[in-house]
Simulated scan of single mutants.
Amino acid sequence: MTAASTTPILRDVTLRDGLQLTGKLLSTERKVAAVRALISAGVEEIELGSMARPDLVPPMANTLEVVEALTEDELAHCWIWVATPGQVRRAVDAGITNIQYCLSVSDAHNKANIGRDTETSMSAFPESFDIVRSAGGRIQLCLATSFTCPFDGEVDPQRVLAIARDPRAIDADDIVICDTLGQAVPAQVSSLIAAAAETNRDRRVVFHGHDTWGLGVANSLVAASAGAAVLDGALGGLGGCPFAPGASGNTSSEDLLFATRPEWLTPGTFADLVELSESITTELGEEPRSKAAQGARSKAEAFPWVIPTT
């Protein structure tokens, strides 16, 4: 991305997708502090949790407590993951109206992840849409396994586009295209994002990439060039899907920010985010995977993005 081009928005997904595989629950206070630190730094959008059953995804157990602790202005930056109209209603009743309704393009993964086939999830979207719109909120249609499925292999791009163009979902505010396993290559990402963007120019396309095969940043950058307005990333490259064997960390938020250089990002705010990332990964006992964060701790102190040693 160049300074003259449109810079994509980062949505930080640390507190949802980033925590899913850790098996550890961050306290409500810790999550609230992280949301506020991200907003203070300049991050415009945050995925703060999910309505998944806590017995299945324990790190999400206190999501509604986090929602309750945040102000209305803070919640305006935040999205919550849901998979059923009942979860949508609970989230809206709790006070959050930016809803990410997720289903998998692959029936096999949708059954493993949500417990039903893709068409059943899709048929419930209009009800979810109506609940959100009645509350004055926004809703995204999130398409997991848009490139490959851990059970069925390659996913036909036309199946993805058929769902994106489905009349039942064409009025969704955003469409989220997910490389759940991180197995896509840039040519595939560019082609599918461009086609998805063409289906409805009034909604945003979000690209959710993983770095399992080392192409998270490359895929995200070509997605932005192809029309994605928002890129998902997690601090330290945390994350993955507990119901998708072979899925590992998200594309690192630090790496995406260093690559795209939004106007609000300065060496100082970047250092703050690196330190936030380090504190979270340390608390979780997770190995940080961000290359940009590693570079920021190098000895090349003439480079302004390196964090000075004290």
Rank of each mutant, 00 (worst) to 15 (best):
E154K: 15
N200A: 11
I163H: 11
A271D: 11
A91E: 02
T260H: 01
G295T: 10
Q100F: 12
V306T: 14
S253P: 10
P157C: 14
V92D: 00
G240S: 00
T282W: 09
K31W: 15
A162V: 07
T120W: 02
V222I: 01
K299I: 13
I9N: 11
A61S: 09
L192R: 05
R133K: 11
P245L: 13
V274R: 00
P245Q: 11
P58Y: 03
G182C: 08
V32W: 14
V92C: 04
S128C: 05
L141A: 01
P150Q: 13
L64D: 06
A197P: 06
N98V: 03
W81T: 02
H210C: 10
I131E: 07
V82C: 07
R90P: 04
P54A: 09
V43Q: 06
G209A: 03
E68I: 00
T6D: 00
D272W: 12
A247F: 11
I39M: 13
V32Q: 03
S27N: 05
A224P: 01
G268Y: 14
I139N: 06
R201C: 03
I131W: 03
A172I: 10
R261K: 06
P245H: 03
W264N: 07
P186E: 01
T266C: 04
D156L: 08
L231Q: 04
E47M: 08
A3W: 14
C142V: 15
T269H: 13
P262E: 09
R36P: 01
A296E: 08
S50G: 14
M60S: 11
D117V: 06
P242H: 12
F270S: 01
D73G: 09
L221K: 05
A296N: 09
R116D: 07
T266A: 01
V32E: 05
L15E: 04
L64M: 09
L181C: 08
C78T: 14
A271L: 04
E72I: 12
M60R: 06
L19A: 05
P59M: 12
